[in-house]
């Protein structure tokens, strides 16, 4: 179990590094899809099957296909985006993100990680009722207001995308 987790962890980090370093944006998108699949596998190991399925369906399936469509619609021939301008800025960016990483990592690996009290859904309950049943129950009872708002947000996003992307004729 642990070795499988490490294999997927290393693969996902390599996919992420591909997004950072590959030149062609289409290769970046494909390596990001690889990262999403590895994260989906890790979600299955963490008993979050629903999240794993929507990760693969929505992220790897829908959002990345959208990215690839836009990449193929826009020919980016200009090579200026690879030129290393102002390498002091790159060093500063590296130092800044190293600082953020050390901050987050020391917070996460602190011995007395401040976790709150245990919730009411241990693994046995989840396996007995089913995780999708539980998620649906929570979505339509406790989080019903957020659910409705998110529906309106999606509607606004769809209409906004159509309005922004359409050609304007004078």
């Amino acid at each position: 179990m642990l070795t499988i987790f490490y294999i997927f962890a290393v693969l996902s980090v390599f996919g992420a590094l591909g997004v950072l370093f590959l030149r062609n944006p289409i290769h970046c998108a494909l390596s990001l899809v690889g990262t999403f699949f590895c994260l989906g596998a890790i979600y299955v190991m963490l008993n979050a099957e629903f999240v794993a399925v929507i990760q693969v369906l929505v992220y790897a399936g829908a959002i990345m296909v959208l990215f690839l469509f836009v990449l193929m619609l826009l020919p980016s021939k200009d090579s200026e985006q690879y030129v290393n301008k102002w390498s002091v800025g790159k060093i500063l960016a590296g130092l800044l993100s190293l600082g953020i990483f050390i901050q987050i990592a020391s917070l996460f690996t602190a011995n007395e990680l401040q976790l709150g009290s245990k919730g009411e859904y241990p693994l046995e309950v989840v396996e007995e009722v089913g995780s999708i049943t539980l998620i649906g129950r929570l979505l339509f009872t406790d989080y019903i207001l957020s659910f409705e708002i998110i529906a309106i947000l999606l509607l606004v996003a769809v209409i906004g995308a159509v309005v922004i992307a359409k050609r304007r004729f004078q």
């Binding site: 992220y59 245990k118 241990p122 998620i135 606004v156 996003a157």
Partner: peptide
């Protein structure tokens, strides 16, 4: 998972919807 809670999973649902939008 480590806190035996389901709220995190519900929040991921919301995060993914916002990311798609």
């Amino acid at each position: 998972k480590s806190l035996d809670s389901m709220t995190g999973v519900v929040f991921i649902f919301f995060i993914i919807v916002v990311a798609a939008a």
